[in-house]
Simulated scan of single mutants.
Amino acid sequence: MRTAIVLFTRDLRVHDNPALASACATAEQVVPLFVFDPELAGRSPNRDRFLHQSVTDLREILRSRGSDLVVRQGDPVAETVRLAGEVGAEGVAAAADVSNYARRRERRLTAEGERHRLSVRFFPGLTIVDPGALQPGGGDHYRVFSPYHRSWTAAKWRDEVGVPKKVPLPPGVQVGRLPAAPAGASPDAAPGGETAARQRLRGWLRNVEEYDDGHNDLAGDRTSRLSPYLRFGCLSPLELAHAALGKPGSDPFVRQLCWRDFYYQVAYAFPEISHKAYRRGATEGWRDNEEAFQRWAEGRTGVPIVDAGMHQLRREGWMHNRARLVTASYLTKDLGVDWRRGLGEFYRWLLDGDVPNNSGNWQWVAGTGNDTRPYRRFNPERQRERYDPTGEYVARYA
């Protein structure tokens, strides 16, 4: 193949990027492309800022390797096909994804590829094990985590791919300008980009053995905080798993990466995960209490650990996982407010709020999802006593 386009979506990196590696191995010229999609903009200022930072960083990395990132704004399918015509591309490579929106985009791109005689291929890379690769007997996906974890652990993972030595951009391509950087909303949000991701990864690998004992310590904050970089593909989950497995005591952390894959395979089989109850027969007698919801969203419930979690969310665009469980349980089990309201509020602020994990975890807590104990409730006072006994976390985010 003479010329191929690599359409970056949620794989904003050059390390272990199968779509990029394949294009560089099979085409004489490669055009890296990112399209700012107006349909996805404006929903979350934090997301918009992190995405812009990640795309900016990707462009700088590609330029340091003698290439560049072509930037367009508009419908990703239309812009990809238009660019293919401009550069005479014969193929398009992109990462496969599981959300409803992403799968519609893939179907449209495939159809346009056929119409314009473009070879369109989708590659793994957003998960460790492909979402549809593991299936239980008599079913299309795993509904319970434990058997999925056993199957996932025994599965053969794909090989990591190296960084291409060259990304040969055709001469004369109009690369385009990046749009103005959005302001964001959370003042203490982590910066986006593969460079920041790899710096945080190196620091985390020195402490991963502390994860099992410390990951529920709210004040200690001994988690990786790599989830935003996984969400935008600034970091390969497979590379992270391989790197962690080489460290003592890493199994509990790698188990959390399996949870991430678990929800991707759930969302792949149940694409309505953000809108419909996953569990058949789930009771959804939610209360319509706008005032209670607003107090929760703004951290004004009067319950210290709940309010601290919501303050952290707004300040950092991130929340400790233990606090996520407590705040979500309080909204759905104590206030009786529909989980979809909480899901939307988290999407508004979270840097790592992807469809499979944000939706899957909200349904798990609400009792409408994959929890085998759907009536489970996280008592906020007991949670505070156990995981923030000195009150340091609550004081930090008061």
Rank of each mutant, 00 (worst) to 15 (best):
residue 318 W to Q: 14
residue 71 V to N: 07
residue 249 G to D: 15
residue 202 R to W: 01
residue 88 G to N: 11
residue 173 V to L: 03
residue 52 H to N: 09
residue 41 A to E: 15
residue 375 Y to R: 14
residue 327 T to G: 10
residue 174 Q to T: 10
residue 381 E to T: 09
residue 134 L to W: 04
residue 282 A to N: 04
residue 36 F to D: 12
residue 286 W to S: 06
residue 274 S to R: 02
residue 4 A to P: 10
residue 371 D to L: 03
residue 352 D to L: 01
residue 70 V to T: 14
residue 106 E to S: 06
residue 384 R to M: 11
residue 289 N to E: 15
residue 257 L to S: 02
residue 377 R to E: 14
residue 398 A to I: 00
residue 148 Y to I: 02
residue 394 V to N: 11
residue 361 N to L: 13
residue 316 E to W: 06
residue 8 F to H: 12
residue 170 P to K: 03
residue 336 G to F: 10
residue 47 R to A: 12
residue 84 A to F: 11
residue 229 Y to G: 01
residue 67 S to C: 06
residue 279 R to H: 06
residue 386 R to Q: 14
residue 56 T to A: 15
residue 150 R to S: 13
residue 229 Y to S: 01
residue 56 T to N: 13
residue 63 R to M: 09
residue 186 S to K: 01
residue 350 L to E: 15
residue 367 G to V: 08
residue 333 K to C: 08
residue 258 C to S: 15
residue 396 R to C: 05
residue 46 N to W: 05
residue 43 R to G: 15
residue 177 R to T: 09
residue 169 L to V: 02
residue 108 R to S: 13
residue 232 F to R: 05
residue 70 V to A: 08
residue 321 N to C: 06
residue 279 R to E: 06
residue 99 S to G: 00
residue 397 Y to I: 05
residue 220 G to C: 03
residue 235 L to M: 06
residue 349 W to A: 01
residue 159 D to H: 08
residue 248 P to E: 08
residue 133 A to M: 11
residue 396 R to P: 04
residue 246 G to P: 05
residue 171 P to W: 04
residue 160 E to D: 09
residue 222 R to D: 13
